[in-house]
């Protein structure tokens, strides 16, 4: 076989001949195509069961159509709305604390002058991201238990006289979910900001200092505009993921006592579908979540484009 660079070959050759010439490259792409069809596209076809009355005895294609009846069913279900409230509430607080938290932390880390200490802070702060939620969930439950260090600390400081039952209190679950997620991810969230801060021209800061700008003014007028693109990209991604509540986290931290404030859409779909076998109902809820998420992405994309005049996609 001849091995001339492919692009120098005349275009007049037949499709078959050209396919034959690039058989090596074609054979590299086909495994991925087959994987995509089997594991991505055929499951997408499975979404139609939301509009069908599917039971374990049916095939996806063969089940009878029922239209929107499952969508109507969950809209009328009071449990669905309490799940919705938990999902939006927890996600809202995660966004409200986590999003600015990562930006502020990145700015502060960036200001650390000593390179070794900076590296040390980064090393420590990224570590929790690599712990699985099973591990972290087990840790959170241990920290918050009667004999855990948080209760011990509060008792040593005489702030409480008997241990607080953190995991059994419905009023504390949101806080536990939000703060444990913040603790795990805030350090990791700084990486992209720190990377884009290195691209800011240092002479801008020099010039600002000449003109007598304070640190705070430098941050507002140089650092933040310098990472604006990254901020809007992250905002779009976070808002798009608002309803895609963290199933890993929920299943570990949830128990029968905090259930009423810990059940979120994903865990609801998991229980309804996988555990109880209401496949069509659970799929309908899943589709509803996807549509709302898509609308949120489009909305936030439109919003950030208004602000920064530049699309991030």
């Amino acid at each position: 076989m001849e091995n001339f660079p492919l692009e120098e070959q005349p275009m007049k050759k037949s499709l078959f001949k050209r396919l034959h010439d690039q058989i090596f490259y074609q054979s590299m792409i086909w495994p991925a195509v087959i994987l995509m069809i089997l594991f991505n596209f055929i499951p997408m076809y499975g979404l139609i069961i939301a509009f069908k009355d599917y039971t374990v005895l049916d095939t996806i294609g063969g089940a009878p159509w029922v239209g929107l009846s499952y969508f109507k069913e969950f809209f009328k279900d009071p449990l669905f709305w309490s799940v919705m409230k938990n999902t939006v509430g927890i996600a809202f607080w995660k966004l409200l604390i986590g999003f600015p938290g990562a930006i502020i932390l990145a700015i502060l880390i960036n200001e650390v002058a000593n390179a070794h200490f900076k590296k040390f802070v980064q090393t420590i702060s990224y570590l929790p991201h690599f712990l699985s939620w099973v591990i972290l969930g087990g840790m959170v439950i241990t920290w918050l238990s009667d004999s855990g260090f948080i209760n011990s600390l509060l008792m040593d400081l005489n702030l409480i006289s008997k241990p607080i039952e953190f995991m059994a209190d419905t009023h504390k679950y949101w806080g536990i979910a939000v703060l444990s997620d913040f603790w795990k991810e805030v350090g990791w969230g700084t990486i992209l900001y720190l990377a884009s801060m290195t691209a800011i021209d240092p002479s801008l800061y020099e010039a600002a200092k000449m003109d007598g700008a304070t640190k705070f003014q430098q941050v507002i007028h140089i650092t933040i505009p310098g990472i604006r693109q990254m901020i809007s990209l992250n905002l779009i991604l976070s808002i798009g993921g608002l309803l895609g509540s963290n199933l890993d986290q929920t299943l570990v931290l949830q128990n029968s006592l905090n259930y009423s404030s810990s059940e979120v859409l994903n865990s609801y779909v998991y229980k309804m579908g996988i555990k109880q076998g209401n496949f069509s109902y659970a799929t309908a809820v899943g589709i509803f979540v996807s549509i709302i998420s898509l609308l949120l992405v489009l909305l936030s994309r439109w919003g950030t484009r208004k602000i920064s005049d530049k699309s991030v996609f």
């Binding site: 991925a32 596209f41 069961i49 659970a282």
Partner: peptide
Amino acid sequence: FFEVMGILTMFVSGGMIPTFLVY
């Protein structure tokens, strides 16, 4: 065509239940 397929897999998915049934 392959690239469009790939991008689709990033933004659309069958979701938990259909994926479970297909697998």
